[in-house]
């Protein structure tokens, strides 16, 4: 089990990697989305905001998110630290993402562009 702090730290690592990737910033320049990250086994809510190509993080959950990412704390921290990809937990049901299909693929794509080969 990971702690809320670990999840928040992992999101900051993800944010730093994203924001230092010029190509991702161009790719997502018109993809303004609010993504809530929710753990199922501990009290942990974070919001990941993509606005004008840049990512910022807020603690807690904003209302009416475009996407909600739900999983156990360990999976969330592992995923945002880049230790695992979202595909396997998504396919086996450990990770649930509520939102439009295009947005779900885009989120997976962003993660792979940061951590992929």
């Amino acid at each position: 089990m990971a702690t809320h702090l670990e999840i928040t730290e992992s999101l900051k690592v993800f944010q730093d990697n994203y924001n230092s990737n010029q190509r991702l910033k161009i790719m997502n320049r018109d993809w303004n989305r609010v993504v809530v990250i929710k753990a199922t086994d501990i009290e942990s809510l974070n919001t990941f905001i993509v606005q004008d190509g840049l990512v910022s993080i807020k603690e807690g959950a904003l209302e009416n998110p475009d996407l909600t990412v739900i999983s156990d704390s360990e999976t969330l921290a592992d995923m945002f630290y880049g230790d695992i990809t979202p595909t396997e937990p998504y396919n086996n049901g450990t990770l649930r993402i509520i939102g439009q299909e295009d947005d779900i693929i885009r989120l997976d794509f962003i993660s792979l562009m940061i951590w992929g080969e």
Binding site: N91, I104, D108, F109, L112, G116
Partner: peptide, 18 residues
């Protein structure tokens, strides 16, 4: 470059999503 970064995982997604 994009293919080599993403395809190893995207091929595992349900096909109807792609």
């Amino acid at each position: 470059d994009i293919a080599n970064r993403t395809l190893p995982e995207l091929v595992k997604m349900p096909f109807q999503m792609l």
